[in-house]
Design a protein around this nucleic acid. Structure first.
Length: 481
RNA sequence: GGCCCCGUCGCCAAGUGGUAAGGCAGAGGUCUGCAACACCUUUAUCAGCAGUUCGAAUCUGCUCGGGGCCUCCA
C-alpha cells in the first residue's frame, strides 16, 4: 500500500495521488521575519522537512517551496521601533532564520521566495480578481469580496453568519462586508510601498502566498502545509484568492501540524511563553530537538518541557551508543557476501509507518527494534567469529542510518555525538573533564592493586556528582547519569 | 456564544472495530571484583457511565477534565 495523508479539507486520511504521476509540488507557509524563531517554528519546519525528505525517498520528484514574508505590519512596527528600514530588519531575521534551520539540520527547500520579489504577480492577481468582480478597490485599498466566493470557509468549516458576529472593521477601512479582507493596502507614512493601478501601497498578507505558490508551482499543486493556526484565516483566504482568480482547484492536500504547548497551553509570541531555537540549542543538541519533535505524530500537540527534552536525549543516546558499539564490534573484519534479511525487515516496517500519514513516532519505534536486534547480536559470544551475525549487524547498521537520513536523524559520527552531548552536560555539573580523568586514573591504580574499597569510593564520589563510570575492554569511560 | 480537537502504564507516546507497539523511569536475572552498558524477564484494558456489536481504547450518547480556532500567530 502506498502513501496515505490526512487532508484537512476532507478531514480524513486519503490515498496520496499527485496531480502529475511521480511529481509533487509542495508549498509551506514560512515565517514572518521580524523576530527569532521559537520551538513552534522549529516543529513546523522540521515536520515539513521530513515530509519533503520522505516524498523524495518514496521516489517523487518533489518541488518544495517555503516562503519568507518580508513585508508585514509587524515587520514595519518593529523596524520603526528600532529606527531601521523594514528591509534591513527583514534581512537580519531572514539570516537568523537560515542559521537556525541550518543548525537544526534542515535541508534547503527547492525555492525560498520572498514576498517582496513577487509584487508584480500580486498586482496581476488583484487585477484579475477585480476584473472578475470578486475584489474591489476602495480608497486605495483593494478588498476581497467574500460574498462572491461560494466556497469560502470550506477549509475551516465555519459559517458566515457566526463569523460575521465576531468580525469587525478597523478604523479607516471601507469594506462592503466586515469579513472582506485586504489584498492591497494603501500607502501610509513610514511604510514601504510599491506603485500599483490603485496607487502606492503594499500587499496584504494572504495574497503573497497565492502569488508565490502559483508562480513557482502553478495554479494547482499537490500539498500545502503550515501550522494549524493558519487554517483560518490565512489558508482559507489563499483558497479564495487563488481559486477565485484561476477558477481551478488550488491545492489537493492540506496538511497542518499541531502546536507545541508549554504547560498544556499553546506557545506563542502573544502569550510570551515561548522558547527560541537558539536558546534551546545552548542546552540541547539539534538532533535532540528533532528527535523530541518526531517522537510524536505531527498532528498531535506536544508539550515542551525540560524533562521531555531530557528524555528525548536519552532515547537518542541509545541509538548512538548502539551504532557506536556496532561499529567497534565489526571494525577491521572482512566484508562478506553473506545475505541478511534483518535490515530489510526494519526498513519495510519503517516505510509502512511513514506511509501512514508520516507516522514518525511509529517509524522510530521500529528503528528501536532494530537497535535491540543489533545490540543482541553484538553481545553474542564470539560475535566476531560468526560472519553471518557480523553481516546482520552491518545490515542493520546501514539500514538504521539510511532510514535515519529520511527523518534527518543519526547524522553525526556516534563517538563524536556522544562526546559532544557528554561535555555539554558536564558544564551543568561541578566537575571538569580533567578532574574526572584524574579520578579514573587513581581508580585504575587502586583496581590494579586490588584495593576495591578505594576503587568503589572513587566511583561513589563521581556518581554523587552525576558521573557514571563504565569499565570496558578498552579501558574506563564515563558518561552522565 | 459558535465551530473543533484531545483524555492510553509513574512520564512520553503509537494504535481508530478483532482482543493494548516503542522509548524513558522502575523491579528481578545474566554479565561484572563490585558496578555501569548491553541482553533476558517483568509492569496498563485504554477519564467515567450508558449503549450499538459476536467482538470497542477504537462507533453513538451523556458526564467530568484539558486544549485550540473564531484578531496577528508554525
Amino acid at each position: 500500500m502506498g502513501l496515505r495523508v490526512y487532508n484537512t479539507m476532507s478531514g480524513k486520511k486519503e490515498e496520496f495521488q499527485p496531480l502529475v504521476p511521480g511529481k509533487v509540488g509542495m508549498y509551506v507557509c514560512g515565517v514572518t521575519v521580524y523576530d527569532y524563531c521559537h520551538i513552534g517554528h522549529a516543529r513546523a519546519n522540521i515536520v515539513f522537512d521530513i515530509i519533503f525528505r520522505y516524498l523524495q525517498f518514496a521516489g517523487y520528484e518533489t518541488t518544495y517551496v517555503r516562503n519568507y514574508t518580508d513585508v508585514d505590519d509587524k515587520i514595519i512596527n518593529r523596524a520603526n521601533e528600532r529606527g531601521i528600514s523594514s528591509q534591513e530588519l527583514a534581512e537580519e531575521f531572514i539570516q537568523a532564520f537560515d542559521e537556525d534551520m541550518d543548525a537544526l539540520g534542515l535541508i534547503k527547500p527547492t525555492h525560498e521566495p520572498r514576498a517582496t520579489q513577487y509584487i508584480q504577480k500580486i498586482i496581476e492577481i488583484n487585477q484579475k480578481l477585480i476584473d472578475k468582480g470578486i475584489a474591489y478597490e476602495s480608497a486605495g485599498d483593494v478588498y476581497y469580496s467574500v460574498d462572491k466566493f461560494p466556497d469560502y470557509l470550506k477549509l475551516s468549516k465555519r459559517n458566515m453568519e457566526e463569523m460575521q458576529a465576531g468580525a469587525r472593521i478597523a478604523p479607516g477601512e471601507q469594506k462592503r462586508n466586515p469579513m472582506d479582507f485586504a489584498l492591497w493596502k494603501a500607502e501610509k507614512p513610514g511604510e514601504p510601498s510599491w506603485e500599483s493601478p490603485w496607487g502606492a501601497g503594499r500587499p496584504g498578507w494572504h495574497i503573497e502566498c497565492s502569488a508565490m505558490s502559483s508562480s513557482l508551482l502553478g495554479d494547482s499543486f499537490d500539498i500545502h502545509g503550515g501550522g494549524r493556526d493558519l487554517i483560518f484565516p490565512h489558508h482559507e483566504n489563499e483558497i479564495a484568492q487563488s481559486e477565485g482568480a484561476s477558477g481551478k482547484q488550488f491545492v489537493k492536500y492540506w496538511l497542518h501540524n499541531g502546536f507545541v504547548n508549554v504547560d498544556q497551553e499553546k506557545m506563542s509570541k502573544s502569550l510570551g511563553n515561548f522558547f527560541t531555537i537558539r536558546d534551546i540549542l545552548k542546552t540541547y543538541d539539534a538532533e535532540v530537538i528533532r528527535f523530541f519533535i518526531l517522537s510524536a505524530h505531527y498532528r498531535s500537540p506536544i508539550d515542551f518541557s525540560d524533562q521531555n527534552l531530557a528524555e528525548a536525549q536519552s532515547g537518542l543516546r541509545r541509538f548512538y551508543e548502539a551504532l557506536e558499539s556496532a561499529e567497534i564490534a565489526t571494525e577491521g573484519l572482512d566484508q562478506t557476501d553473506i545475505a541478511s534479511e534483518e535490515g530489510a525487515k526494519v526498513a519495510e516496517k519503517f516505510r509502512e509507518a511513514m506511509d501512514d500519514d508520516f507516522n514518525t513516532a511509529l517509524a522510530i519505534a521500529h528503528l528501536f527494534d532494530g537497535v535491540r536486534a543489533m545490540n543482541r547480536l553484538v553481545a553474542t559470544k564470539k560475535f566476531r567469529k560468526k560472519p553471518e551475525l557480523v553481516a546482520q549487524v552491518r545490515d542493520l547498521h546501514t539500514t538504521i542510518l539510511r532510514m535515519g537520513e529520511v527523518i534527518g536523524l543519526y547524522r553525526s559520527q556516534p563517538t563524536e555525538w556522544l562526546e559532544k552531548v557528554k561535555l555539554a552536560g558536564l558544564t551543568a555539573l561541578e566537575i571538569t573533564q580533567e578532574e574526572i580523568a584524574e579520578l579514573i586514573k587513581q581508580r585504575l591504580q587502586a583496581r590494579a592493586e586490588k584495593d576495591f574499597s578505594r576503587s568503589d569510593e572513587i566511583r561513589g564520589e563521581l556518581e554523587a556528582k552525576g558521573i557514571l563510570l563504565l569499565d570496558t575492554r578498552e579501558g574506563t569511560n564515563w558518561r552522565l547519569k
